[in-house]
């Protein structure tokens, strides 16, 4: 379970996350939705202890991330696909991560198999396609067999096959009783993947409801349009300059 309590992040230039509170329950995929710049990534970085909240707190399994002794065994996070040293081999990237949390080589082999990367284990990260790099990120997230998974924009730039793979993986992990939070700016994708939605705009909570309710409330309407309407007041930059 993830608990976000009155989380706030202010920068000198403005407020990225504004008194945000929600819970992410285990056993289902929760979609974390919002337009670009809504504060999704900042929220996730604060959950992971990478950014320091101005106020409020984020707890994973009842504890602050920074207090976790072996965090990879509690929370698996898909980082940005580029956050890998380009010259390091796939296997070695997973190996240093495993070592940092006292995990053995057998876990590296297991996640390589699980993500279909076993054949690419000896390749340098820079030679991987975006889809393969995304699989490497997933492999890193699964390394410690964690009960909580946080996937930030996992389908960005993926081909249809990759999108379906991520979608099924997220559902399977939730089906195993894990807590799964998937962020996206695409309503259509979340409608297919998530059974619960947390929608934010300009750092504030706009909606926290089951996907079914969102869909039935807008039955017949285009979901993407309904999402746009919900978040329209909170979009800072809109192409074309008109509504």
């Amino acid at each position: 379970m993830i608990e976000v309590n009155h989380l706030t992040k202010r920068y000198r230039g403005g407020t990225a996350v504004d008194d945000l509170s929600f819970r992410v329950e285990p056993g289902r995929v929760t979609g974390f939705l919002g337009p670009n710049g809504a504060g999704k990534s900042t929220t996730i970085r604060m959950i992971l202890g990478l950014d320091r909240p101005t106020a409020g707190s984020a707890l994973v399994g009842g504890r602050r991330y920074a207090e976790l002794k072996r965090p990879l065994t509690v929370v698996g996070a898909l980082a940005e696909a580029s956050d890998v040293h380009p010259g390091r081999r796939v296997r070695d990237h997973l190996l240093w991560l495993a070592r940092s949390n006292g995990l053995g080589r057998q876990r590296v082999a297991a996640v390589l198999d699980e993500t279909g990367l076993a054949g690419a284990a000896g390749k340098a990260a820079r030679t991987l396609s975006l889809g393969m790099r995304q699989r490497l990120g997933i492999a890193a997230a699964l390394l410690g067999d964690p009960g909580v998974l946080i996937l930030d924009e996992p389908v960005n730039g993926l081909d249809p096959e990759g999108v379906i793979w991520i979608r099924n993986l997220a559902k399977r992990l939730a089906g195993e009783g894990r807590t799964v939070l998937v962020s996206s700016h695409l309503m259509s994708e979340m409608a297919l993947t998530a059974s619960h939605l947390v929608v934010i705009g300009r750092g504030r909570l706009l909606a926290d409801l089951p996907t079914d309710e969102f869909v039935s409330a807008h039955s017949g309407a285009n979901l993407e349009e309904a999402f746009m309407r919900l978040t329209s007041d909170s979009v800072e930059y809109r192409a074309g300059g008109s509504r």
């Binding site: 970085r45 920074a66 965090p71 956050d83 890998v84 991560l97 940092s100």
Partner: peptide, 18 residues
């Protein structure tokens, strides 16, 4: 320095939060 230039620092600090 490559921790910062490659973005590995975010992965490193997620793995070792202290």
């Amino acid at each position: 320095g490559s921790e910062f230039s490659t973005g590995t620092i975010r992965v490193s600090l997620a793995a070792v939060p202290s």
